[in-house]
Design a protein around this nucleic acid. Structure first.
Length: 884
DNA sequence: CATCTCACG
DNA sequence: ACGTACGTGAGATGT
């Protein structure tokens, strides 16, 4: 039927509750000027916006629960008892959520003695199927029982945007039940959130099995005599009353005496006037600006005027020690981005220059290059690299707010200055997105807007520096900042500027060879498949393998069949095409990501690749490398490893030299756990995986540790570092969970110090809400006390892994700083080029190699003081391929 | 712009 | 019973 109507019914209470917890983390940040919490209002607004956009309903209603008691309480006094008290921060927002509905042009309704579910059920089941499709939005699954051919139930999964669609098919697939049977399942299994008792000892799984056989709760009892004598049968008989009552309570009443009809619910658009008023009351500035009513400027104008001077001819008196300085670039690749403005100043004076012309003035250059004229920045590394293009060597940076903010809270990783400032209660600046726009619209605004924004940036930096310094001191992170991250950023800047030379010819030759191979494999695959298709498309490949060729489905993804390596590995023996696909994938990856990807980013001026290290991203303190990523160049498989042949020294007669830490993470673990056996193994310089194998598998002679046993021990060692779980280990080793669990138990028995460490660090995380590395790098773990098993478990593994991975990262960072100093002091030409987590790559004249080798080894092995030795191995050769 | 897959430590 | 190994970045596909 053309133009069929669509009715959207929202379970207001449960969606609001979900909204509240979706932004629970940000509770303290969402407060309006009168102190009202607004996180649930904000998230509710977004959820409604999302579903309205997606569904485009013609009719909408939000239903709310009316009061504390309903007809269900007459049946069962304890209904919904035992729920933890609704937080007051949530309760205070409910009236505004109702108001928000009206402002959005959406009716809301509640009915004495009934729940929102009943209102929704009644409307959904009574509208004409010919005229209406119905979509129900809820925060819990109770409503899924309503699903039928015309009613789809959307349940919020997590966050504000993700939904799970419950159609009758989906319910059949997920539970093997019809929607109607959901209430039978609750009857048998109960529901702890509503305090429905169900039958003792029966959970969801058992309930489903029973229902598949008997159809309903009543069906189960009709056939109860046929069941074998068992504890379960006994429980069923004893709890019959409970089962029937639970089912009754879980059943939505579709005959609620509602006084509205669907005709009252027609959606006629937002009430802009009400919305503006409400947004203002809630301090929702971004929503206001999006409304585009002209009202936004009222808010914007609330920013106090900022005083600054626009400079074209800088003079020496404009520069003083202790000023902040900021260069504006609109693209993130600062190796190439245009500088569209420069600003500097202190509390008293602020200066702004448009464009980059100012950078050719002597007074400016002298100031930037003067070590004694200290300055504070926001992303010093970007500034140093960008200014290097102008021949300016920036010196005297003594503080950086971006780095400091990252150390203070790695979760808060916005790069936008306004957002960071907001976090520290500074509001006199707009976000870059607001000023410059985003996507295709991004661009340089008119002069006055630009200079105003830049002046605000320098003002913000002046505000932030003392605030952040105080926080660093409070968290005992001053050394981490001043002796590690800040000096490291200068070293990284040098490495990025230096770049690494790449032989494009080598890559182009490979490109030709791989192209031929790919065509060959392709045609073989098409022949075996009996048709041509896009091998790169998991979707199309899935159809060929699992539908056309009928191979067994081993794993599914959210959207279809999984065709990942571990799945294909298992199918290899069943069809020859699988091996070809694996080969194709391997070569295609090398070709597109590495051969073609790297060719695209070679700078034609110097034949080098200049990556950028992101110093303020990872949760553990590692670096990341982008544009391109030089930390994931292939090595494990020979075909890919050849890519490294293209990485060469910048001069004839030079070598690529590489040095990496041996087992740095396990050594760190040995040190922080103080496990005597693990420590001893390193002190005696044993092969650690062999040593683990001997202890765990009780083998006396190292010669008796064969390859397979060592491989298993290695996996266990990895598991330990990652926060081991039996399932993870079983997956990795292809063994059963029981076997994996036995390995782990034995490991903990043989390495009791490690076990104690894990228990202690998790306990500490639960108590403090964060964990730390040896250098006080901090990671907050907001989920560590979550009631959700999965979420909590993840946080626990993170608590175990982060101090290990993070301390190892700290160690290499310190080594880099010292190596940089030593290379300078000893006046070597050798240059540090790359960092790959536990490896450093250099280039050096052949004759310097022995000196470099000694220097690097000395620094790497003697950084810090540990109860186990650190060990670094090195090698060198004409390309990176040989240097390993 | 999200999803899947796969490269590295 | 729960459904997972820790940390990253990038290319190709398809909505």
């Amino acid at each position: 039927m053309p133009n069929k109507n669509k009715l959207l019914l929202v379970d207001g209470n449960s969606v609001a509750f979900r909204a509240f917890f979706a932004l629970y983390q940000s509770l303290s940040r969402f407060k309006n000027s009168s102190g009202l919490h607004t996180n649930a209002i904000y998230a509710f607004h977004n959820m409604m916006g999302n579903i309205m956009d997606k569904e485009q309903p013609t009719h909408v209603l939000v239903a709310f629960d009316a009061g504390k008691t309903t007809f269900r309480h007459e049946t069962f006094e304890e209904y919904k008892a035992g729920r933890s008290k609704t937080p007051s921060e949530f309760k205070e927002q409910m009236p505004y959520i109702r108001e928000m509905c009206l402002a959005l042009g959406i009716q809301y309704y509640e009915l004495e003695n009934y729940e929102a579910d009943d209102i929704i059920g009644t409307l959904a089941k009574h509208v004409s199927k010919e005229e209406f499709d119905v979509v129900v939005l809820s925060g819990d699954k109770d409503l899924t029982q309503l699903a039928d051919d015309h009613i789809r139930v959307e349940v919020t999964v997590k966050g504000v945007s993700e939904l799970e669609s419950y159609t009758p098919e989906h319910i059949r697939e997920k539970y093997g039940l019809e929607p109607m049977q959901i209430v039978d399942m609750k009857g048998l299994a109960g529901d702890s959130s509503d305090n429905l008792p169900g039958v003792t000892g029966i959970g969801e799984k058992t309930a489903i099995t029973l229902l598949k056989e008997y159809g309903s709760v009543e069906g189960v009892y009709d056939h109860i005599d046929e069941m074998k004598k068992s504890k379960r049968k006994e429980n069923l008989i004893n709890d019959k009353e409970n089962a029937l009552m639970s089912k009754e309570l879980a059943t939505i009443n579709i005959e609620a005496p509602i006084t509205i009809t669907v005709d009252d619910l027609k959606y006629e658009g937002k009430d802009t006037e009400k919305l503006v008023a409400l947004y203002k009351e809630m301090d929702f500035k971004t929503f206001l600006s999006k409304l585009d009513t002209g009202d936004y400027h009222d808010v914007s104008d609330e920013l106090e005027e900022i005083i600054y001077e626009v400079v074209t001819e800088p003079t020496a008196d404009m520069f003083e020690p202790g000023m902040s300085v900021y260069l504006e670039m609109l693209e993130d690749n600062y190796h190439l981005a245009d500088i569209i403005g420069v600003t500097w100043g202190n509390e008293g004076k602020r200066y702004v220059a448009i464009g980059d012309e100012i950078l050719s003035h002597e007074a400016m250059i002298t100031w930037l290059e003067d070590d004694t004229l200290t300055k504070a920045t926001y992303d010093a590394k970007a500034h140093i690299v960008a200014l290097n293009r102008y021949g300016i060597q920036v010196k005297g940076v003594t503080f950086d707010s971006l780095l400091a903010a990252y150390l203070l809270d790695t979760n808060d990783k916005s790069e936008d200055l306004a957002e960071v400032a907001y976090h520290y209660d500074y509001k006199a600046i707009e976000t870059d997105e607001k000023i410059y726009g985003k996507g295709a619209k991004r661009g340089v605004p008119e002069d006055e807007i630009l200079t105003d924004h830049l002046a605000r940036k320098v003002a913000t930096l002046n505000y932030l520096a003392p605030v952040l310094k105080a926080h660093l001191a409070e968290k005992n992170q001053e050394k981490l900042f001043y002796d590690m991250e800040l000096p490291l950023s200068f070293v990284l800047a040098k490495m990025e500027i230096q770049g690494i030379r790449v032989n494009a010819q080598t890559l182009m030759t490979m490109q030709q060879e791989f192209a031929v191979i790919l065509t060959e494999i392709e045609s073989r695959i098409y022949e075996m498949a009996g048709e041509e298709f896009n091998i790169n498309s998991p979707k199309q490949l899935g159809v060929i393998l699992f539908e056309k060729m009928q191979l067994p489905v081993i794993k599914k993804t959210k959207t279809g069949y999984s065709t990942a390596v571990d799945v294909l590995e298992q199918l290899k023996d069943q069809a020859p095409i699988v091996e070809e696909i694996l080969h194709y994938r391997q070569i295609a990856k090398i070709q597109s990501t590495y051969v073609e990807g790297l060719l695209k980013v070679i700078n034609p001026n110097d034949n080098k690749i200049h990556t950028r290290y992101v110093q303020t991203l990872t949760q553990t303190g590692r670096l990341s490398s982008v544009d391109p990523n030089l930390q994931n160049i292939p090595i494990r498989l020979e075909e890919g490893r050849k890519i490294r042949q293209a990485f060469i020294p910048r001069e004839e007669g030079w070598e690529i030299f590489s040095s990496d830490y041996s087992q740095i993470e396990l050594r760190v673990l040995a040190d922080i756990s103080q496990d005597e056996h693990l420590r001893q193994a390193f002190i005696e310089d044993q092969d650690i995986h062999t040593s683990t194998a001997m202890r765990v598998f009780d083998i006396a002679n190292p010669d008796d540790v064969d390859g397979n046993i060592r491989r298993q021990a290695k996996a266990v060692n990895f598991g330990v570092v990652y926060g081991i779980s039996d399932y993870g280990l079983s997956q990795n080793l292809g063994i059963t969970r029981k076997e994996a669990k036995d390995f782990i138990d034995t490991y903990f028995e043989k390495y009791p110090g490690v076990k104690t460490y894990m228990k202690e660090i998790v306990r500490e995380a639960k108590e403090q809400g964060y964990v730390e590395t040896l250098w006080h790098r901090r990671r907050y773990l907001p989920d560590i006390n979550s009631r959700n098993f999965n979420v909590r478990s993840f946080a626990e593994r993170t608590a175990i892994n982060t101090p290990i991975q993070g301390s190892a990262a700290d160690i290499l960072k310190l080594a880099m700083i010292e190596i940089d100093q030593r290379l300078e002091k000893e006046q070597l030409q050798a240059t540090m080029l790359l960092q790959v987590h536990d490896e450093l790559v250099f280039e050096a004249p052949s004759e310097e190699i022995p000196a470099l080798e000694a220097l690097v080894k000395d620094v790497m092995e003697n950084i810090g003081t540990f109860s186990v030795p650190l060990k670094a191995d090195s090698s060198f050769g004409p390309t990176w391929y040989e240097a390993k």
